[in-house]
Design a protein around this nucleic acid. Structure first.
Length: 848
RNA sequence: GCCCGAGUGGCGGAAUGGUAGACGCAGGGGAUUCAAAAUCCCCCGACUUCGGUCAUGUCGGUUCGAGUCCGACCUCGGGUACCA
């Protein structure tokens, strides 16, 4: 008898699938389609366990749906633009393009042996002009429809390297290479007008029934719809009024100051005239641009000396302060500070000795605010201090509504709906991205490139020896003719955010070689993505941008109406984590060690070579820079792809993070070998036996459980059921016929997870054709019906005994039997039961 | 800081509000073997006077019954608009 040998089985079946063209997606109007997509990878050069998990999940669904009779589209491509390629070029002197394509080849060669049912003929890379040229066409169409514009926005500026830094390149407020203190600087940048869709992107979330609730919630909070009041403070000096937006206009009588952003036009005007203010504004601009950094920075303010009039009392003057915590990007870049009812305003008021005025109190405990702002839920009733609208006891919600009405009637303010969502800045001052296809002409201004001149290709002859964007300093690439007047002009040197690349690739997969971004028949047939799978880390940005793009592509005729929401169902998998092993260098820099470089012994974990003790940071996201990436290739080499696939599908629920440990892969491999052994015995078996029906009943239960597990993304429970069924099959004394039926079904049920082994078993058992093409086993509901059921008997919620009764026994009879049991008698100790609860088919609870 | 999650044996985890720990890993014992590998069988939360008692991050609540629902907290993770 032969033994299970993955290294001979796997290539054999991969070849068979390839020769039969099994996984090539074809538009077949006679079949219902199913589009399975996993978020495409960044070509880092090596696949990691996260990829194996992600793509195996998608593959299980894709194969299952094929077996269910769908015409399946399951493509693969590369999110190939981005910073790592430039970083590699800087570090090693190579070229981003060469580095990227080499990585793609390497990763592909690692992915092929996994046996994923991918249609490789649709492979695309976002750094390919065939792809990004079409992206430029989309950009031009969006521009024409008014969905793209230019405005100023802040970036992280490294004053030593004279370059823009990404947020991850700013460490503790300093540039990662220069170490210089980073400052915020304004640049003119390109923006997508995602804010046009704020309300629709929010309200449409309700329709995304097959998205995780948490993702919809995160997106809703991100869009951040709020109702408030807009009004202007008149300046005492008669200058331009200061427009503010507030969500708590009801607390206007508690105003203690007006605050403006350091980037507010008024702040700039004052800074131009007063060096002290200019100095303070510069101080406010220190540090990076991230929200976390801005929010946690020490609150700083400076009195401008300007005074404004309170809208409800012209004799009441409020000071105008510049404050570093007010963002120019949100609202009007100016607020009024209501210190008693906003913690940030309160801290600020206490720090600078500004008044704190209570405007309402707790009904039960009316005491003035000290150093904790009073912020009850807006739905809770509070006691107002002589509110100008006449309210006495009312909720915040009621007070806000009354205030807006009051202000509108009086004519000094208007109700306003504000969104936290900002327009999407897409400009990047970098080389390795999609060039923005516009031209700057002295005579005509900013002019879109002509479509027939697309793609605007990146030049190859660039260098990365000095910081900054090589496109800026390229000797000739920028030179071009103005598309409008034909005179010499300069190309835009900004490239696009890589989120743009990933915002429409799912649509491009439906016609990846077309000379338009999409093709109507293909998007009509294949869209939408029926099941999208990816990391939870993309819950907000990537998914929101894609939802915007789908709408914009619909508006510009590249996607049908039905695709305005492009992903019908979303599953967010957890990450594969692994401990980080960290030490600190002599220069006080962190040093990360690979798992194979360290060993655990008594007293801790140590570096093998040096004996130095390492700090173990558990359950950290696998990251190349932290050296905690586990290599799946070793597992494939040792045990085969099916073992790797089976292992990542078992145990951990897919939505949860999984901490990778080396033990377990061997167990998975042993199990597959055992299945192989059991099935080959059955393949040779003949004759009658006993318990055929029991085996077939168990088989149908397994069909049900495995199918439900796959449909419900609980692959781990499908795997557990398959373990159980294998045990049953092994112990079964049934005849050869029943056993063969059961074994054939086992092969089919395993086929989404371990397709190579399944094909081998299928052919061993004389199955027709490929198991990849075979219809999914049919469930016989009649086989699931049981005649008896075992009921646990509880007394006061604690299990005391159990009884086995006919499934259809009536409640009174069950109650009688339950009370008679030894366990219940003992627990009752002669006392009569107060109450007996019988849940048919489930449980009996006796209340003593 | 803010938003969103997660927490169950030594480990990964299972459990429509209904027997907590399915299934697997590791571990222990046995069979087979000259011996081993491989395989097969059994045991495996803690304590126990063997009746039970305690156990699902902590503390409270709802319920006949809570891992599951509600409230507060702790710890860890993700996102935070230029990492992808």
């Amino acid at each position: 008898m032969s033994r299970y040998d993955a290294s001979s089985i796997e290539p054999k079946w991969q070849k068979a699938w390839e020769e039969a063209g099994t996984f090539a997606a074809t538009r077949d109007p006679s079949k219902e389609k199913f589009y399975v997509l996993e978020m495409f990878p960044y070509p880092s050069g090596r696949i990691h366990m996260g990829h194996v998990r992600n793509y195996t999940m998608g593959d299980v669904v894709a194969r299952y749906k094929r077996n269910m009779g769908f015409s399946v589209l399951h493509p693969m491509g590369w999110d190939a633009f981005g910073m790592p390629a430039e970083n590699a070029a800087m570090a090693t002197g190579g070229h981003p393009k060469d580095w990227t394509y080499k990585n793609i080849e390497e990763m592909k060669s690692q992915m092929k042996p996994m046996g994923w049912s991918l249609d490789w003929s649709r492979e695309l890379a976002t750094c390919d002009p065939e792809y990004y040229g079409q992206q430029q066409a989309l950009f031009l169409d969006f521009l024409e429809k008014g969905l793209v514009y230019r405005k100023n926005a802040v970036v992280n500026w490294d004053p030593v390297d004279m370059t823009v830094l990404a947020n991850e390149q700013v460490i503790d407020g300093k540039g990662w290479r220069s170490g210089a203190e980073v400052e915020r600087r304004e640049l003119t940048q390109w923006f997508f007008k995602i804010s046009d869709y704020s309300d629709e992107l929010l309200s449409a979330l309700d329709g995304l029934k097959d998205w995780p609730e948490k993702v919809r919630l995160m997106q809703a909070n991100w869009i951040g719809k709020s109702q408030g009041l807009r009004f202007a403070f008149e300046r005492v000096d008669g200058g331009d009024p200061i427009e503010v937006y507030t969500t708590r206009p009801d607390t206007l009588m508690g105003a203690s100051f007006v605050g403006i952003s350091a980037d507010h036009p008024l702040a700039k005007e004052l800074a131009a005239a007063d060096p002290k203010i200019a100095e303070f504004a510069a101080l406010c601009r220190k540090g990076g641009t991230t929200a976390a950094e801005l929010e946690t920075a020490e609150k700083l303010g400076m009195d401008t000396g300007l005074r404004v009039k309170h809208p409800l009392d012209p004799n009441w003057e409020l000071p105008v302060w510049i404050a570093n915590f007010i963002l120019m990007d949100y609202g009007t870049g100016a607020i009024f500070g209501s210190a008693a009812h906003d913690q940030r305003d309160l801290d600020f008021a206490r720090k600078y000795g500004l008044p704190v005025i209570d405007t309402f109190f707790d009904l039960k405990d009316p005491k003035p605010v000290e150093n904790t702002a009073f912020l009850p839920p807006k739905t809770e009733k509070v006691k107002w201090v002589s509110h100008f609208t006449g309210l006495d006891e009312a909720t915040g919600e009621e007070a806000i509504a009354a205030t807006v009405e009051f202000a509108e009637k009086a004519g000094w303010g208007t109700g306003h709906t504000q969104y936290r969502l900002r327009d999407w800045g897409l400009s990047r001052q970098r080389y390795w991205g999609c060039p923005i296809p516009v031209v700057h002409c002295d005579a005509c201004g900013v002019v879109p490139e002509k479509k027939e001149n697309l793609p605007v290709e990146l030049p190859y002859d660039v260098s990365f020896d000095i910081p900054g964007n090589p496109l800026d300093r390229h000797p000739t690439w920028r030179d071009c003719a103005c598309p409008s007047c034909g005179k010499p002009a300069k190309r835009e040197t900004d490239t696009m955010d890589t989120f743009v690349d990933s915002s429409w690739y799912f649509a491009r997969f439906t016609a990846p070689r077309a000379d338009t971004p999409t093709v109507a028949e293909d998007v009509d047939y294949w869209m939408n993505v029926d099941q999208y799978i990816g990391g939870i880390e993309h819950a907000i940005l990537h998914l929101l941008y894609s939802r915007f793009f789908a709408r914009a592509m619909n508006m510009t005729g590249h996607l049908p109406e039905k695709s305005r929401e492009p992903f019908n169902a979303l599953f967010t998998q957890g990450m594969v984590t692994h401990a980080i092993y960290k030490t600190t260098s002599a220069e006080d820099r962190p040093v990360y060690h690979y798992p194979e470089q360290v060993e655990a012994r008594e007293g801790g974990v140590f570096v093998k070579d040096t004996g130095e003790q390492v700090e173990v940071i558990p359950s950290a996201k696998m990251s190349k820079s932290k050296n905690n990436v586990v290599d799946p290739l070793a597992i494939i080499a040792d045990f085969g792809a099916d073992t790797a696939r089976w292992f990542v599908m078992s145990d951990s629920p897919p939505e949860r993070d999984v901490e990778w440990t080396a033990s377990g892969a061997e167990g998975a491999s042993k199990h597959l070998a055992r299945v192989y052994r059991i099935v080959s015995d059955i393949a040779d078996a003949t004759g009658e036996g006993t318990g055929d029906d029991d085996l077939l009943r168990e088989m149908h239960k397994t069909i049900k459980a495995v199918s439900e597990g796959i449909e419900g993304f609980a692959f781990n429970t499908s795997v557990a059921k398959l373990y159980g069924f294998t045990n049953t099959l092994q112990k079964s004394q049934a005849g050869a016929g029943a056993k063969k039926t059961a074994a054939r079904t086992l092969a089919q049920l395993m086929s989404p997870m371990t397709p190579h082994l399944a094909e081998e078993l299928w052919s061993m058992l004389g199955g027709e054709g490929l198991v990849a093409d075979a219809p999914w086993p049919k469930l016989d509901e009649a086989m699931l019906v049981e005649d008896t059921v075992t009921l646990p008997i509880q007394v006061n919620g604690k299990r005391r005994d159990e009884i086995t009764v006919p499934t259809d026994m009536d409640k009174a009879e069950v109650e009688k039997l339950a009370l008679a049991t030894e366990g219940v008698q003992r627990a009752l100790d002669g006392n009569p039961p107060k109450k007996v609860i019988v849940v048919p088919g489930r449980i009996v609870n006796v209340v003593a």
